[in-house]
Design a protein around this nucleic acid. Structure first.
Lengths: 353, 353
DNA sequence: GTGAAAGCGCTAACAC
DNA sequence: GTGTTAGCGCTTTCAC
């Protein structure tokens, strides 16, 4: 906790027989014509000998400039968020350090950790789908860019996906295959992105089939195990309701469904088609490969980071950032429903594209 | 970049008609019996009215205490590292902020980003499999804990897995199934963890079968696409060499192999058994589910973080940290080799446990 | 060219 | 109880 005694600019100055001002100029490369070659060499030698490094904390205090960017995400175990983080890191480019707050998606981050984040010399904040409370809490503390949801509470600039397109495409895909009774496995948090995914699909189903989703409304954590359990517990009810296709709010849910279906002996897509949203890299290698709506979390993070850097740099934020695409990827987990009479016809089980 | 004019303790002091010292005591909860209720209330009111927040940068400068922990990881797109990061966050507990450096695994992080990391009030560093150069660079700058490899260059405490156990178990599993010609798809970076995985298995194969791995030595990036390509390019050679089982250095490689095998029409495990190391959560839902050696990256991160907190707190580091377990998970991707005469016998294709 | 000195915003002795 | 006063380590005018 307590840092060992550091080497300060004063130490260097003493050894090089100059003032700390000179040391500062030199280590910051601002010594153009202002410092003689001799002095410069002496100072550099001293720096080297002592192993001096400028203390950035002191530097940030002195200059008033902060170089950190804080990222608030719910859960790095979900590849969606780690891709997003990777995108943020890339979009930030050099020159910024990235501080992470992993916040329980349900509860907002505790105020302490928020303070700690802001504490670390944070000049801007990236918040993934923050709850309204958090948005308010953040507002005014530093430039903020919101990801994956609009920020009506404080109109921060935000980046998100054209979810409508994706939801529509998925609904039409399933409808086109001949499914009419479709179940939905939702996330257990009421984030806008999940609201939209479900609501938009449901509206389309209503238009086309005269009714929305079929069977029990199920919500569960975005976690393979939780989804597997949820599916196992509800499959009977869904089947009883005649469900032939199940849409999951996120790929991770679908992974759980696939696992549980395998164990229960439910053939996918023979007996049940499964589809989802996200298109994580693993969705191409599940058994069977997953039909899903691609939402590039990497791009989302990248764009958000770029935007934040711009805003921090004083660029006026045009809140109207174009939405990122959401396009359907059809793979092996969806197929036409089995005829009611013939239990399992040809069921093209699995098989990548 | 430039923070808007901040509200300082002096502002609060002025408004509350007290000194900044008093403000400091109160906002830090050190006002036990030292401050009267009246003053306290006045100050709190002023804090509220002004929206004052203590500037952590200044605070860290003043106290000399740093609360940040820096984590250096190569690639958050690999779930192994995001699980690890999640574990670190959990192990750190409240009271520390986590700064991330995502460093190209090949090149070490550029000195600039390292400086920036250290700059941000970092009191300790967690480095995932740093190259020797990096270790030296880090040494002495702050307490360091190394993950996934020993740190002979500077004997920092480190945490890792009992890889020998896992490698042995996997070798024996394959041998026991009847495979004698086994291929190996390695990572393209020479990290010790990968060295050990391969070398230990190879040694066992030598003991048991009289020869090491069969077929071309292939190395590629730890990335699904790269592995798929690598497999597609080498499968002919492996098959020609009589390979019936392929071990991958990491699950992510195996995912690529699975995908490529599917597209090439290579039956797994009928024609080729596939196994790997890591046991990421997705390995239970691949088609077929993957036989792999479980290495809990979350636990690794958690333990490392605990250790670092201890070291930073001044606890003497007993470099001898027990290794984390590496246990084999047998799933559907491995099976006995097909007899040379009968192309595809019963091949229990897929099917989770 | 180089140094002196005044902060940056806060904490922590030590007075009063 | 509360205020005064030094710093923390650095940057940055402004003299010399």
């Amino acid at each position: 906790m307590r840092t060992a005694k550091r080497i300060t600019a004063a130490d260097v100055a003493r050894l090089a027989r100059v003032s700390t001002a000179t040391v500062s100029l030199i280590v910051n490369g601002k010594a153009d014509g202002r410092v003689s070659a001799g002095t410069r060499a002496r100072v550099l030698a001293a720096v080297d000998e002592l192993g001096y490094r400028v203390d950035a904390v002191a530097r940030e205090l002195a200059t008033g400039r902060r170089h950190g960017v804080g990222l608030i995400v719910p859960d790095l175990a979900n590849p969606y968020f780690s891709q997003l983080t990777q995108g943020v890191a890339a979009g930030l480019g050099g020159g910024h350090r990235l501080s992470l707050i992993i916040a329980d998606p349900v509860r907002d981050p505790d105020p302490g950790s928020l303070d700690r984040l802001l504490a670390g010399g944070v000049a801007g904040i990236l918040a993934e789908a923050p709850a309204a409370d958090l948005i308010r809490e953040l507002d005014g503390r530093a430039p903020v860019v919101v990801l994956d949801r609009p920020s009506p509470e404080a109109d921060h600039p935000y980046v998100g996906f054209a979810l409508d397109d994706g939801a529509l495409a998925l609904a039409d895909h399933l409808l086109g295959l001949g499914h009419t009774r479709i179940g939905y496995l939702d996330a257990d948090i009421g984030a806008p992105t999940f609201e939209v995914r479900r609501a938009r699909m449901e509206r389309r189903l209503r238009e086309a089939a005269g009714h929305g989703f079929t069977g029990p409304a199920v919500r569960c954590r975005t976690d393979i195990d939780a989804a597997a359990e949820a599916f196992a517990a509800r499959w009977d009810a869904w089947r009883a309701a005649g469900v032939t296709a199940l849409v999951c709010a996120a790929d991770v849910h679908a992974y759980g469904v696939l696992r549980a279906a395998g164990r229960l002996g439910v053939a996918v897509p023979g007996e049940l088609s499964v589809a989802a949203f996200d298109d994580l890299p693993f969705s191409a290698v599940t058994g069977p490969p997953l039909t899903t709506v691609r939402l590039s979390a990497f791009d989302l993070g990248f764009r958000a980071a770029e935007l934040l850097v711009g805003v921090m740099g004083g660029r006026p934020m045009d809140a109207a950032v174009p939405l990122l695409p959401a396009t359907l990827r059809v793979r092996g987990s969806t197929a036409p429903p089995a005829g009611p009479s013939e239990p399992r016809p040809g069921a093209g089980a699995g098989g990548a594209r």
